[in-house]
């Protein structure tokens, strides 16, 4: 089920203490991260690593801090303690060039967040042209190629309002891919979709995973996780409760909280 390239070192995943020297192919290191919203302690010492080529699926009940964790990872939220390193670069250091760092981390949102005033193609070309200074022509070629890859070649000129939810989400994936990121993060990419549209989006994501893309995916799509995840991480109450292969977490969960959660969603 899990290819050897996706093998995971479990010792790096279970807490702040496991700060061994970074493996050469570690791309994300989250170290003892604490995040408060006012009095609410949303992330309570989260630590884990993601290696290049990993497909990490993050599960957990509503309010457990999954979205917040992703948003901290690309600097959309500040943190109060700990640190997050992307390829060794601290996200929350004042001296870090955040826009440049974010170009290396694609993000796909539950609500798609396409730019409604732009066409599908313009949604994709905006950031390469403005942030990467890619020539317009080249960006359009890349955009069309990506639209083809997500099965929407004929929708280049459509505005988001003219697309179905599944189509919008596929454009959003293409838009993120256009920056040629090293990591793709997905925050419940299919949970705002009608059931019949979920698979078209999951298929694109599976294609990415099989192509070797490093991915961090918040999703409760068990089929997806079983098929392509190298690791599943269960979060509850701002803490990582359990980590393992899909087989370990889904079939032989060690923690009572994991078992309780799985029994509710399976």
């Amino acid at each position: 089920m899990t290819s050897p390239a996706h093998a995971v070192t479990a010792s790096h995943t279970d807490g702040a203490g496991a700060l061994a020297s970074p493996m050469p192919d570690t791309i994300i290191r989250v170290e003892n991260v604490h995040k408060h919203f006012g009095k609410l302690h949303v992330l309570q010492g989260v630590s884990f690593e993601v290696n290049k080529g990993d497909v990490m699926v993050l599960i957990g009940p509503s309010g457990s801090g999954k979205s917040t964790l992703l948003r901290c990872m690309n600097g959309l939220e500040v943190i109060q303690n700990g640190q997050i390193l992307i390829d060794g670069i601290p996200v929350h250091d004042r001296r870090t060039n955040l826009p440049a760092l974010r170009q290396r981390l694609g993000m796909v949102f539950q609500q798609f967040n396409l730019f409604p005033h732009l066409t599908a193609l313009q949604n994709i070309t905006l950031a390469p042209v403005r942030a990467k200074k890619m020539p317009q022509r080249e960006a359009e070629e890349l955009g069309l190629q990506l639209l083809k890859r997500v099965g929407l070649a004929e929708k280049a000129g459509a505005h988001p309002g003219q697309l179905s939810g599944g189509q919008q989400q596929r454009v959003a994936i293409a838009r993120a891919l256009a920056m040629q990121p090293e990591v793709m993060m997905f925050d419940e990419p299919t949970s705002a979709l009608d059931p019949e549209m979920i698979n078209e989006v999951l298929d694109v994501m599976k294609g990415l995973a099989r192509g070797g893309m490093t991915m961090v995916v918040v999703s409760h799509e068990m089929g997806f996780a079983r098929e392509v995840a190298s690791r599943v991480m269960f979060m509850d109450g701002g803490k990582i409760v359990e980590t393992g292969t899909p087989d370990e977490v889904f079939n032989r969960p060690q923690q009572a909280r994991t078992q309780a959660f799985l029994s509710k969603i399976l």
Partner: peptide, 8 residues
């Protein structure tokens, strides 16, 4: 957030 996350 979408715009920032793209690196703009």
């Amino acid at each position: 957030e979408a715009a920032l996350s793209l690196g703009l």
